[in-house]
Lab assay of single mutants.
Amino acid sequence: MDETGKELVLALYDYQEKSPREVTMKKGDILTLLNSTNKDSWKVEVKITVNGKTYERQGFVPAAYVKKL
């Protein structure tokens, strides 16, 4: 869990989004878990840094590609 009590997951593999509802992640990324009720895909939040500014983006990733921490 992070400092706000949200559950975290670790990306086990790289994943490139295939639709606007998904998010891209790299192996080793730590993501905030938002919903894990679907056995196939979990909703997560990723933090992306562009030019020194951090943005948050929500979307789905394959459940088999992440592990709860």
Results as ranks from 00 to 15, higher is better:
23 V>S: 03
25 M>I: 15
10 L>Y: 10
13 Y>G: 04
9 V>E: 01
56 E>A: 15
63 A>N: 02
34 L>D: 00
12 L>Q: 03
62 P>V: 06
3 E>R: 11
33 L>Y: 01
16 Q>D: 13
29 D>A: 06
58 Q>L: 04
15 Y>A: 00
6 K>S: 10
16 Q>Y: 14
11 A>P: 01
48 I>V: 12
30 I>R: 03
42 W>S: 01
51 N>M: 09
45 E>A: 15
21 R>G: 15
50 V>L: 11
2 D>Y: 13
47 K>W: 08
62 P>W: 07
56 E>T: 15
3 E>H: 14
2 D>H: 14
44 V>F: 03
9 V>T: 01
22 E>N: 03
68 K>R: 12
33 L>Q: 00
52 G>W: 04
53 K>D: 09
11 A>D: 02
64 A>E: 12
11 A>Y: 03
13 Y>V: 12
17 E>Y: 03
5 G>V: 13
55 Y>E: 10
32 T>F: 09
21 R>Y: 14
23 V>R: 00
25 M>W: 04
31 L>E: 01
1 M>W: 13
19 S>P: 04
9 V>M: 03
39 K>N: 11
34 L>A: 01
15 Y>K: 00
10 L>C: 12
40 D>Y: 15
26 K>T: 07
6 K>M: 10
2 D>P: 13
7 E>I: 15
27 K>Q: 08
56 E>D: 11
7 E>K: 10
2 D>N: 14
47 K>G: 05
7 E>H: 11
55 Y>K: 08
46 V>T: 09
25 M>D: 00
48 I>R: 07
20 P>G: 08
58 Q>Y: 06
53 K>Q: 13
68 K>G: 04
32 T>H: 09
35 N>K: 05
21 R>F: 14
59 G>W: 06
64 A>C: 15
54 T>D: 08
12 L>E: 01
20 P>E: 13
54 T>Y: 09
23 V>H: 01
59 G>E: 02
14 D>F: 06
18 K>L: 08
20 P>S: 11
48 I>E: 06
4 T>M: 13
23 V>D: 02
18 K>Y: 05
5 G>F: 13
19 S>T: 12
38 N>L: 09
34 L>E: 00
51 N>C: 12
41 S>P: 02
4 T>F: 12
13 Y>I: 08
64 A>R: 12
67 K>A: 11
10 L>R: 08
29 D>H: 04
15 Y>R: 00
66 V>S: 00
18 K>W: 04
43 K>D: 02
23 V>G: 02
41 S>V: 14
34 L>F: 03
49 T>D: 07
55 Y>A: 07
2 D>V: 14
13 Y>T: 08
10 L>I: 15
60 F>D: 03
53 K>W: 09
56 E>P: 12
2 D>M: 14
47 K>H: 10
27 K>W: 04
68 K>N: 05
42 W>H: 00
48 I>T: 08
61 V>I: 08
32 T>G: 06
50 V>M: 10
40 D>N: 12
19 S>I: 04
51 N>A: 10
57 R>E: 03
33 L>D: 01
45 E>P: 00
30 I>V: 11
39 K>F: 08
66 V>G: 00
22 E>Y: 06
12 L>F: 04
37 T>S: 14
35 N>F: 05
16 Q>L: 12
62 P>T: 05
52 G>R: 02
18 K>V: 07
50 V>R: 09
43 K>A: 06
55 Y>C: 11
16 Q>H: 13
17 E>M: 11
13 Y>C: 15
66 V>P: 02
1 M>D: 13
3 E>S: 14
4 T>C: 15
57 R>T: 06
35 N>A: 08
59 G>P: 01
8 L>V: 07
37 T>M: 10
1 M>A: 13
5 G>A: 14
53 K>P: 01
3 E>P: 14
13 Y>L: 09
35 N>H: 05
8 L>Q: 09
37 T>E: 14
46 V>Y: 09
54 T>H: 07
19 S>C: 11
47 K>F: 09
66 V>N: 01
10 L>M: 14
40 D>G: 07
39 K>H: 10
35 N>M: 07
43 K>E: 14
50 V>F: 10
53 K>H: 12
9 V>W: 04
1 M>Y: 12
67 K>M: 14
62 P>A: 04
20 P>D: 12
1 M>K: 13
34 L>V: 10
57 R>G: 03
45 E>V: 14
52 G>C: 06
36 S>P: 06
42 W>K: 00
51 N>G: 10
51 N>D: 13
59 G>T: 02
36 S>W: 09
2 D>S: 14
35 N>E: 14
55 Y>M: 10
42 W>A: 00
16 Q>R: 11
61 V>M: 02
19 S>N: 14
41 S>N: 11
8 L>S: 07
58 Q>V: 13
64 A>W: 10
29 D>W: 11
8 L>M: 10
33 L>H: 00
31 L>C: 07
33 L>N: 00
58 Q>I: 11
3 E>A: 14
1 M>Q: 13
